[in-house]
Structures are given as structure tokens and as C-alpha cells.
Computed example of a mutant assay.
Amino acid sequence: MAERSLEVAIAAGGTAGHINPALALAEELRDRGHHVRFFGQTSKLEGRLVPEAGFELVPVVVSGFDRSRPWTLATSLYRMRRAQSQIARLFSAEGAPDVAVGFGAYVEMALLNCCHRLGVPYLLHEQNSVPGLANKALAPHAARVCISVPAARDVFEREGRGAREVVLTGNPVRRSVVAASREEGRAALGVEDGETMLLVFGGSLGAAHINEGVCRLKDELLSREGLVVVHSTGADGFDETVTALALTPDEQLRWRVMPYITNMGQALAASDLVLSRAGASSIAEIAAVGAPSVLVPYPHATADHQTTNARFLVDAGAAVLVADSAIDTPEFTGALLGLLDDPARREAMREAARGLGQSRAAAALADQVEAVALS
């Protein structure tokens, strides 16, 4: 427990990959007796997720600069300055926070630039192996830069952050994921104790090729006695996947197709093997529950950062990496079916994933927040 209750401002927005780690930190800080307030855009995803989690969201209106449309720069700068002025007036009226944390989205710049001008220390958290533009721009004045995977360290140190200021905390995962149990997950999904469960999901981008590859293996997968496939197709790929699989009523009992999974923590905890993309949040959640995985990085991610993300688990012996270009080759088939047929190897991968300590990332990041605020 910290020496006193802190007032913490958090900026996170745009995508679940930014927002969910921020909410995981906020939950940890709230449990430690601190007050947390978010800054973000009500029209974006944070406008729903933050209030649902029980936290206040201060509206901030900003817009990014599109290099292909130079005329957007003026609007972007105007909105940024206006947002900074609004935040400064709020702090003047209600008091500035003790510390602020940004999670990499463009919206963080209004809050953190304002904090810098007022002398309020701030931290950055980077979820990906390849840092985003906002975090790189704000790094020179950050009291601490916290990273999810070791590969991000070199980038920030090239930006002028000293080795002591870049701290590996891991990527915070929400309590609903960390606390999920295999028994509860299997009960929710209707999977029996003795069955082997393959969980398939593609994330918010690029699920189509994974869906196609798994559909191609339908007969080989269903030929394995006791195998159950839980397949989240993504909203855009649901109808196409259902048509491609053409499951009979009996097959539908063993192959559950859905557009999305509402409780990913339970699904991961219930699984014996995961097939997914390698987004930062997916990597963090897979590691936190200790699920063995076959990772197929999205090939069009910026600077191929999903491949670097995947290396975090692969190098630890917790995952197998297959390139997207190999989905239609024997390499993909052998990797997936080989692990389904090898429970001993899957168990070794599970222990390797747990050994990464990802389930403690929220606490590690909260420790850094307290250290900066109370130093």
C-alpha cells in the first residue's frame, strides 16, 4: 500500500489493445486505494468500455494528422491545443493529478503535454514490440517508459531514454482474464472435462486467412476423437465461415462457430491449444492464462510488429510461430495437428507461458506509477 491515496490520470483510447491494459492498471490502482480518472473520446471505444468498468471518462476531442491529406494538420493542431486548454482549466479548478499514464494512442498527447507544462510527472506504457508515434514523441519527457516485451527497449533508448528509465513490466491484463478458471470456462462453453479444446480467433484484423486455413482442415480435425473446436470468426467472416464449413448437426456439437467471444478469459482458460494472430493484447492474455499457442502474425501490421510480438512467447518455448504465407502449406497443418496430438508438449508450453509472469503485469506497472508519484 502506498503512503497516501493518489490522484491518477490515464489516457487510453481508440482500440481495445490500448484500453484494456489501461483498465487493468486502473483496477489495480483502485484496489490499492487510489482514485483514477480517464481522459478519452466519448465517440470511440473508450466511451463505452471505461464507464462500463466503473471509471469516470473526461471527454477529450482530438483528431490525428493524415500525411496523405496535408490539410488535416491545421485541424489536428487546433483540436489538440483546445483539448490541452480544456484539461488545464479542469486541473486549475479541481486540482492537478499526482501522476499521469499514457497508453500510446494519439489522445494521450493532450493530457501528457498539459501535465508536462504543469510539472506533473507522467509514465508511458507501450503494448507492442514496435512503439507507436505518440509514445515515441512523448518519451523524452516521461519519468518512466514501461514496455511489454524486451524488443521495445532498443527503440526507446534510441529516442534518448536511459536504461534505468525503460522498465519491462509486461502488458497488464484485466482481472476477468487472470481470474478465469478452466472449470468455469468449460462449463460456459459446454466442453467436457475429458475433451481437447482448440480455440481459434483472429483478432480485430486479418481473421479471414486463419478462418480459411482452419476450414480446410475440417475433416482432419473432426477425425480426432474428443476434439472440440471453439471458433471465433470475427463479425465480417462469420457467414462465409459457416458456409465453408457446412457443418452437420452432429458436427456442430463439436465445432462451435461464433462471430466473437464475449468472455475471452474463460475461453482461453478452457482451451488446450490456441490458434490466433499475435496482437499485443492477445499475446498478453495467452501468456497470462498459460495457454499453449500457434501464432500466425498479421502480415500487414506496421513494421511487422506482430512477428516481433510473437517472438516473446516463441523464444520462451510457449508458442509455435507460423507465417501467414504458410497457412496453405503442410507447415501450418503439421504445426497445428502435431500439437493437438502431443499433450506432453502442450503442457511444457503451458508451463513456459506461466513462467513469463504476465499475470503480474498490472501490479508491476502500478508499482512504477506509485514510485514515480511518490518520489
Rank of each mutant, 00 (worst) to 15 (best):
G119S: 08
G119R: 12
V120E: 11
V120W: 09
P121A: 14
Y122A: 05
Y122T: 06
L123D: 07
L124G: 02
L124K: 10
H125N: 07
E126P: 00
Q127H: 11
Q127Y: 06
Q127D: 04
N128M: 03
N128E: 00
S129E: 01
V130Q: 06
P131L: 02
P131R: 11
G132H: 08
G132E: 01
L133N: 03
A134C: 04
A134Y: 02
A139G: 05
A139P: 02
P140I: 15
H141S: 15
A143V: 00
A143E: 10
R144L: 09
V145M: 09
V145Q: 13
C146A: 06
S148V: 02
V149T: 12
V149K: 13
P150V: 14
P150W: 10
A151E: 12
A152I: 00
A152E: 07
D154I: 13
D154P: 01
E157G: 00
R158F: 06
E159F: 11
G160K: 12
G160A: 11
G160Q: 08
G160P: 04
G160N: 13
G162Y: 06
G162K: 15
E165T: 10
E165M: 05
E165G: 08
V166I: 00
V166R: 02
V167K: 12
T169N: 09
G170M: 02
N171Q: 05
N171G: 04
N171E: 01
V173M: 10
V178F: 08
V178N: 05
A179D: 14
A180K: 02
A180V: 07
E183I: 07
E183N: 03
G185I: 08
R186H: 10
L189K: 12
L189Y: 15
G190F: 14
G190A: 11
V191C: 03
E192T: 04
E192N: 09
D193L: 10
D193N: 05
G194L: 01
E195Q: 15
E195H: 11
E195M: 09
E195N: 04
M197F: 05
M197E: 03
L198T: 06
S204A: 14
S204Y: 09
S204T: 13
L205Q: 13
A207G: 08
A208Q: 15
A208E: 13
A208K: 15
A208P: 05
H209E: 15
I210K: 03
I210Y: 02
I210F: 00
N211R: 10
E212K: 15
E212D: 14
G213K: 12
G213W: 14
V214F: 02
R216A: 15
L221F: 00
L221R: 11
L222I: 13
L222C: 14
L222F: 14
S223D: 06
S223F: 03
R224H: 06
R224M: 09
R224S: 02
G226C: 04
G226M: 01
G226I: 03
L227N: 09
L227D: 07
V228Q: 09
V229W: 07
V230D: 10
V230L: 08
S232E: 13
T233L: 05
T233G: 04
